[in-house]
Amino acid sequence: MISPAVVLDHVQKTYGQGAQAHTALQSVSLEVPAGEFLCLLGASGCGKSTLLHLIAGLEPPTSGSVSVPAGGAAMMFQDPALFPWLSVADNIGFPLARKGLGATAQKARVQELLAMVNLDGWGHRQPHELSGGMRQRVALARALAQDARVLLMDEPFAALDAMMRDRLHDEIERVWRETGLTIVFVTHNVREAARLADRVIVLASHPGRIAGEFSVKLPRPRRIDAPEVAQLSRTITDSLRSVLRGNDDAS
């Protein structure tokens, strides 16, 4: 039995107070084994991003507990959120510099990370000189530089075109295999979840809660247009529909 990397125990998140109170997440319990690639799937407003913020420690839960490995979790957003005043190399080196790593060690590590995301020779460029897909790869390298055992990804490829997204799926899968990271990947794209995940958790909205779970045993690497992936997507989509219908009946 592999010990879990992330554990959420009856986590509740409420914003506001009294009559204005809004429950974003209700009693979410979840264990993510170390090394798992987990996809959180749900419609907008189901609290997927809130869930990631709680795991990242950006917000405290209202009740319940969240535990992550020592060293915390790294996080990537839909927007690469690169710092425009720093070069690509300095962006990747940012978390290293905050840890007080020396200049030489930092430079060597940045070179390794640039190679890992296939951006050799781009270190001296400014972020605005890169394409959207390249910027997201820099953001990935910067997140990896944090050296956390858990990587949280908040719809990181949602703003990219399909071709670029396919390439980045291959890339993130390779990085995940090479590093043995635990990845929690939030998306509203069913195919993307079926392409990448070991396990897909479906969230329902108002309030956000776990509505279903699919274990994905398909061999890797998968193609997003493979029949098995399409078949699985259909199954997940059907379950999502019934969850959404349930929401409509409730309201």
């Binding site: 990242a56 950006l58 790294a74 996080m75 957003f77 927007d79 959120a81 710092f83 005043w85 720093l86 940012f94 978390p95 510099a97 905050r98 840890k99 910067r142 944090q146």
Partner: peptide
């Protein structure tokens, strides 16, 4: 706000966040 959140995620807190994110971002 995303830059501030990213800065915090990447380990900049307190004075370090001011010096390495707030000030250059405001430049």
């Amino acid at each position: 706000p995303l830059w501030i959140r990213a800065g915090k995620m990447l380990g900049a807190r307190g004075w370090s966040l001011v010096a390495h994110v707030y000030l250059p971002a405001a430049m």
